[in-house]
């Protein structure tokens, strides 16, 4: 069934709203996986890449509802397909959640993190559109995506801290993953403050939003693959 998504998502290249069919099927697959394993399907690369693709798709629809066929779709849809391909290539984790992950704090932490990542992705897409066409509304859309993403990411981190305090007796650990998570937080904080500096708006700040997504992807995938951390389950 997941293969069908590779046919449905590209329909959005013709018209943005056609992504609804892909999102409906994708949501059903995520729900089915949740029912099958009795847990939120957000463990391991297979689950999380798929959920990230779905979240980007949902954000793409909300922010592009009125858009006709343009580079907004030409950039976002291949990104979604790339993430889906990564999800299919990664092994799926079967079975229930490890006991330490059975808490609402963990579920909220993970869901909000990936929704924030999706918004950061769209922020980067709008940044590229601004660099291509120089339209002010693309810059404003980047700002809105990144502001919302930053708030959700902050809440996700706070929820993660609460969970860690209950699980391990500390809300912060000195590990590469935590440092990179803080790097993401600082980076988008930097972006939001840089926008307020007189004379710094425009291309240079838009670039910060684009680079931010590269940092996000490294924090998500790169740190886990290259460095040992507390986020290995």
């Amino acid at each position: 069934m997941e293969i069908t998504l590779f046919i449905l998502y590209p329909l959005a290249l013709y018209r943005t709203r056609l992504i609804l069919a892909a999102l409906a099927l994708h949501a059903a697959l995520i729900a089915a996986s949740a029912v099958k394993y009795g847990r939120i399907p957000l463990i391991g690369l297979h689950d999380t890449l798929g959920f990230l693709a779905f979240s980007i798709g949902a954000a793409y629809l909300i922010f592009g509802w009125k858009r006709l066929r343009d580079w907004y779709s030409y950039i976002t849809i291949p990104l979604i397909l790339l993430l889906l391909a990564g999800s299919l290539a990664a092994p799926q984790m079967h079975g229930p959640l490890p006991p330490v992950l059975k808490t609402l704090w963990f579920e909220l932490h993970v869901i909000l993190s990936f929704v924030a990542y999706a918004l950061f992705a769209l922020g980067a897409v709008f940044g590229v559109l601004f660099l291509m066409h120089g339209r002010k509304e693309d810059e404003a859309d980047q700002y809105r995506n990144l502001l919302l993403g930053y708030v959700l990411f902050s809440i996700a981190m706070i929820f993660g801290g609460i969970w860690a305090y209950y699980a391990w007796g500390t809300y912060w650990l000195w590990t590469p993953k935590e440092l990179w998570t803080t790097i993401v937080w600082f980076w988008y904080g930097l972006y939001l403050h840089a926008r307020l500096v007189r004379g710094w708006s425009g291309r240079s700040v838009v670039w910060l939003g684009i680079i931010g997504f590269v940092i996000v992807m490294f924090t998500y995938a790169g740190v886990g693959l290259l460095m040992k951390s507390s986020h290995e389950f």
Partner: peptide, 12 residues
């Protein structure tokens, strides 16, 4: 950001 980047590469 730069200092945490350096720190994260030294830690492992």
């Amino acid at each position: 950001v730069c200092l945490f980047f350096i720190g994260s590469s030294m830690m492992p």
